[in-house]
Every structure is written in C-alpha cells, then in structure tokens.
Design a protein around this nucleic acid. Structure first.
Length: 703
DNA sequence: CCGGCAGGCTTTTTT
DNA sequence: AGCCTGCCGG
C-alpha cells in the first residue's frame, strides 16, 4: 500500500478530522468546503492504519454518493476500499433485517413497499374497515400515507401530526389509529415493510436484543454519516445504538443546508450530536473551494437572512470571479428561451454539457424548458420529479414479478388480473378468497368453473405465468418474457404512446440483468429506483434537477429558474415560519451548487393551472439580497405577455383590459370595469362587488 | 359488477 | 395534462 501525504491534500481542519479515529467527531462543513474529500481521505486513512474495510460503515444520503466516494478512495488505497459498507440508511437496514428480521417474525424474503403500494393498501384497508363515513371529510390517500410516515419519522402520535399539519382532521385521530394498526397488522401478515419500517424495525431489534446490538456494534467499529443535518430522530438513535460499544462515529453535515424536515429531519439534530455523544470533537470547515468570493458574498447574504443564526461563515479560496446574474424574463417562455440561448453560447465556448445545470423548486417547473430543449435537440437528464418507476406500465410489470415472490400480494394481484377485460376489483377480491384457501393458489384458478367472459383469458394468463416462473434462466430473461406476455395488454391500455412505454420496459429488463435475486431486485426498485441517467446511460448532458435532488452536487454553470412568488418559495410553505425558513435554506442549497457562473431567473408573468396567466413577483428571497451583490439583466422584449406563450389571453388584446373576466384568489370571479394608472385596475366581482386591485400584488388569473 | 365517459381537481420536496 | 371520482348504461 502506498503512503499518502495527507497534509499535502488537506487543510489543517480536514486533516484533524481525518486523523481522529477514536471517539466521536462532528464536522460542521459549509457548502463546497470539501467534506466529500474529507470522508474519502478518512476512509483511506483508516485503511492505511490497518483497519479492515469491512469494519467501516459509510452512510450517505444516496447510494450513488457512497459509491462515488468509495471509487475515489480506491484510487488512493486500491480496490480493497470497495469492501467498505456504504449506502443509505434504508438499504443498510434492509440488509440487516434480511439477516436478523426473524427476531420480529419476518421471513428473510419480505418485500419492500413503495409509496404507491402504501397508498393502495391504506385505501384498501380504509374501505374494508368502513372508516370512510358518508358526508364527512376523510384524508386523501396521499395524505394518509404522509401522516402515517410522519408519525413514525417524528416519533410522535397521530394527534400530534394532525394538529401540526392537518388541524381540520384532528377529530379523526382515533379513526386513523385504527387504520394504522390495521396497516401494521396487514404488513406483518403479508411479510411487507415500508420505508419507515426498515428503520424502525431495525431500531427495535437493536433496542431489544443486546446480543445483536453488541455484535453489530463490534462489526462496524468505524461509522461515518454524511449529510447528518438531514437525518431524523430514528436515524440518530440507530447511529447511537450501533456505536454503543465504541462511540466511534464521525458525522458530517451543514446546519444551513437542512432541507428534509418534511420527512422528520430536524436541523437541530446535528447540533444535538455532541450531547448524544459526550466528548465529541467539533471541527468546522469554513474554507470554500468550490466557487469565488463574489458568488460567495451573494450566497452568504442569502443565508444571513435566515432567522436562525448558523454556525459558520465561508471564505473563498479561489480568486477573481463575477457576481451572479439576475435575469427578469417576460414569461415562462422567455425564461426558457433565455436559458436555451445561454446554453448554446456556452456550448460554443467549449463548456461541456455536463457542466451545466438548471435547478427548480418542483418537478413540473421545468416542463416548458424541456419542450424547448427538445426542440433544439439539446440532450438533458432530469433528476427528481417523476421517476421511471412511477409509470403505470412499470408498475404493471413489477406486479407480475411481485406475484412470483408473493402470490398473495393482493395489490399486485389486482393490478395484474384487472388487465383482463371484464374482470374488475370486486371480481379479483373473490378470486383472492379462493386462492387464499387453496393449497396452490394459482392451481386453484386453473380449476375454476365459471362461465364469465374473463374466465378463459384468466386461465390462459395464469398458465403462461406459471410456465415463465418455472423456468430458471436469470432475472433479465424472466423480465423479457413477462414483457412479452404483457405486451398485448399494454397495447390496449395505452394505444397512443405504447411504443415509448415498451421501450421503458426494456430498460427495466436491462437493469434487472444486474441482479441475481428477485427479492433484491424488487427491494432495490423500491429503495433506490433507477433514474434516467442509469436507465438510459445518459452521461454527458445538461442536468435538470429539483433542488432537493441537486444536494451535494456541483456544476460550473447553474441556472435557478422560476424564482418567483408562487413557485419558490413553494406556496405550501407560506403558512408556517419554520417551513418558510426551510425554503430559504433550499434556495441557499441551490445557489451554492455553482462553481463559476450563477444565474437567477424569474418570469414576470406565470401560467397557472386552468390556463390563466398571472403577474409574478420576484421571489422574496431575491428581494432580500442586497442589490450590489448581483447583476441585473432584463428581457429585451416588450413587457406584454399576450404576444408569447400559449396563454388564453393572446386573442383578447392585453392581459387586463376592460371587460376581461378574471379570478381573484379571495374575491373569486369578476369583470374588469376600469384600468387605472400604475398597476391598478378596478374589478366588479360577482360575489364581492367592485374593488380596486393592484395587479403587481394580487394574484389575478384570466378566465 | 364492469367499464366508459365527462368533468373536476391537482401540482412540493424523497429515502 | 393527466388522474380520480362519480354517474350511468349494459
């Protein structure tokens, strides 16, 4: 093994973090301060000290992040570093539970539920238990899943979650508890776990089984946790329990970059670390290697507006550089055109596509831009937003596979059997009853006597499934055959875009080729669904990403788009101060991704659902930045949205002319009666009578 | 009980 | 623009 000159590659603080190998360490690391480097070198250092890589556990936010770090470590100390246990909390817990889950009565082949499964099961149970009373309000299935998860992640009861997030539903707490109990029972009966169970069940084992706890703790003698500000209480407890024999934990994170509180993370967690592990050595990394001082002045100003005072202030190592640019676009079309035009210029200047990113608050904010990128044949990958896995066709295919592992998975069974015309949900439930009481569930169907029109197609389907399952030729050929079987259904279900979907299914079969074990494949699909990058092998292209998915990454040129009130901060976050503060941190995360050039972009007019166009105000987070810290560019185009975009306004002259029907968020629909000076107009509201409205402030949509 | 159809609603962020 | 819901005819 080569001897690495650590002090040549690390600054004194990093070096101290790397070389502290006994006892708890907390590294508070600012954006771009080289925390990944610190972790990589620490792995290398431990191995140079003769530590067995199998005793090291590196927990990161995504599986990719761990892989990337271990790849880099292997360049330093050789391929042995690949033996380090690295991954997400969830995947690590999954592996532990396959080994030790028997203690809780779980077989080693339990299946992991994804978000959609959870929603389906909760809906199914709510109906079965008759909890949805006529006329009374009941949460939608997505809210049900959120409440259930939040309760677990925050380690609170249902009432607490409802009070904070759903005050109008507090009276339902006992009803929901009944539902959640049934859900827990259901999961146990069918050998299922959801994301949260992976953490909670593993914690339960560590809590109640001292032998296992001790064994595991000795096995993982060196624990490192990245992005610690985004862990929740359950995860913090897991770390404490697993380190119980040695307290050899290094946590790395940035209190200013905590953006996952909706999942139960609390940025105060990271500040609690020294209390949880007495004797913690706290090291701060305050030098920024990523960008130059003008960008840093601006991003420092963004986080300085936060109510919480953070623990550090960053100083750039790099020299030179220009401050960020704010571009005020006419509308969303102009915004997209600006970004595309800049990208084309950058290409001509020789900037690699993979060095450019466009970031936004929510997945759908990039739709317009995507259209334009396609038009100009600019290749891009999109991170965050909808995943490949979420398409109905993929769910169908995965359900075929799930039935192979667990024939009594009623959710998968329904998906598959209702593909047959004439067979609906009720029908499948009856068939399910029959299967449950049979020796061989699928044999029971083949012996079924029914004159219904679905009977013979069903038998045909089942017998073909049995044939496919009985072959033993690897996962990718299994998937290929299932796709073949599914194809006619796919065709009739999606007559318009069936070729595209078929192509995506084939990508899945390629991915499946990397797995030996069906259970592992299913778990991986649920825990870490492949993104576009992996599925299609896209690499050197422009990156479109939600801010959340951009965490930990960096690019030379970054555009943050739709920095407009109503988009960023998210309207959902306006009610509560804490959530607004988190939005600000989110903006901070976004703006600290840029190495060289940072663009803030916002449209002066935005389209809202329903086809209206409303005036947009620059995001409050932009307004807060002292004006000297960025440069302002304006659209050269006329300040009249009627001539761009696809809005319904285009054939009515200006956006706000007398006689135009508009809708106000509070006053409802009305008719414009006068256009006054400035941005003011008078509107006669159908319900509220005549009011003067400042279009620069109020949200008016055109009907 | 199934499925087609129309109309309304929604759209944060993710392991 | 797509998804879900509710309604209605077979």
């Amino acid at each position: 093994m080569t001897n690495i000159d650590f002090s040549a590659h690390l600054n004194p603080e990093q070096l101290e973090a790397v070389q502290t190998i006994d006892g708890p360490v907390l590294v508070i690391a600012g954006a771009g301060s080289g925390k990944t480097r610190t972790l990589v070198y620490r792995v290398a250092y431990l191995m140079e000290q003769g530590v067995d890589p199998r005793n090291i556990l590196l927990l990161t936010f995504t599986r990719k992040a761990a892989q990337e770090m271990l790849n880099r470590a292997s360049e330093l100390v050789g391929p042995e570093s690949m033996l380090v246990n690295g991954g997400t909390f969830h995947s690590f817990c999954y592996l532990q539970l396959r080994q030790f889950g028997g203690v809780l009565g779980y077989p080693s082949n339990f299946t992991v539920l994804d978000r959609r499964d959870i929603e389906d099961i909760l809906t199914h149970l709510a109906r079965e238990l008759n909890l949805k009373k006529e006329g009374s309000t009941f949460p939608k299935k997505s809210a049900l899943a959120t409440i259930c998860s939040k309760k677990v992640n925050c380690m609170r009861d249902t009432r607490w979650v409802l009070t904070r997030g759903y005050p109008h539903l507090v009276h339902l707490a006992p009803v929901l508890d009944t539902l959640f109990d049934a859900y827990t029972e259901y999961k146990r009966r069918h050998a299922l776990m959801d994301y949260d169970d992976l953490l909670v069940n593993w914690k339960r084992i560590l809590d109640t089984e001292p032998d296992i706890r001790e064994m595991v703790s000795r096995r993982y003698g060196f624990i490192m946790v990245d992005e610690y500000q985004d862990t929740n209480l359950v995860q913090a407890e897991l770390v404490r329990l697993m380190a119980s024999t040695h307290n050899n934990v290094m946590a790395v994170g940035d209190d200013a970059q905590s953006i996952y509180s909706f999942r139960g993370a609390n940025f105060k967690n990271i500040l609690e670390f020294p209390n949880m592990f007495p004797g913690t050595k706290v090291i701060k990394l305050e030098r920024n290697y990523r960008t130059h001082q003008p960008n840093l002045d601006c991003t420092n100003a963004i986080i300085a507006n936060a109510q919480e005072k953070f623990t550090k202030r960053l100083v750039a190592v790099r020299r030179g550089g220009d401050p960020p640019i704010l571009y005020e676009a006419m509308d969303e079309n102009d915004q997209a055109e600006f970004v595309v035009a800049r990208i084309r210029e950058l290409f001509m200047l020789g900037v690699e596509p993979s060095e450019i990113a466009i970031l936004f608050r929510a997945g759908f904010h990039s739709f317009q831009l995507e259209g334009l990128l396609n038009r100009y044949n600019i290749e891009y990958v999109k991170r965050g937003g909808l995943k490949l896995l979420e398409g109905a066709h993929i769910k169908d295919l995965i359900s075929f596979v799930k039935l192979l592992v667990n024939p009594l998975d009623i959710i998968a069974l329904k998906r598959v059997f209702t593909l047959i015309p004439g067979l609906g949900e009720r029908g499948v439930e009856k068939i399910y009853e029959l299967m449950m009481h049979a020796q061989d569930p699928f044999e029971a169907i083949l012996g079924l006597k029914s004159r219904a029109r679905w009977a013979s197609p069903l038998k045909e389907l089942v017998s073909r499934l049995k044939t496919i399952w009985s072959k033993d030729e690897g996962l990718d050929s299994l998937i290929t055959e299932l796709i073949h079987l599914y194809e006619p259904f796919l065709q009739s279900k999606f007559p318009d875009d069936y070729p595209r979907r078929l192509q995506e299914l084939k990508e899945v079969s390629v991915i499946a080729g990397n797995f030996k074990d069906v259970g592992e494949f299913l778990a991986e699909m649920a825990l870490d669904p492949p993104d576009e990058e992996e599925a299609y092998g896209k690499r050197d292209c422009v990156c479109l990403s939600t801010v959340h998915s951009a965490k930990g990454l960096e690019w030379k040129v970054v555009f943050i788009i739709s920095l407009v009130e109503g988009r960023f901060p998210s309207p959902m976050a306006l009610e509560r101060d804490e959530e607004l503060e988190e939005e600000r941190r989110l903006f901070y995360v976004a703006s600290t991704r840029a190495k060289d050039t940072l663009y803030f972009v916002y449209p002066r007019w935005i389209n809202v659902s329903g086809g209206g166009v409303i005036p947009g105000k620059a995001s409050r987070f932009i307004e807060e930045i002292p004006p000297g810290l960025f440069r302002r560019w304006k659209s050269g185009r006329r300040q009249d949205p009627a001539h761009h975009g696809t809005s319904t306004v285009s054939n009515k002259g200006g956006p706000f002319s007398v006689g135009t029907r508009v809708r106000h968020t509070i006053f409802g629909p009305g008719t414009i009666v006068r256009v006054l000076g400035g941005e003011k107009i008078a509107v006669d509201f159908d319900g509220a009578g005549e009011k003067v409205i400042n279009t620069g402030i109020a949200r008016l949509s055109i009907l």
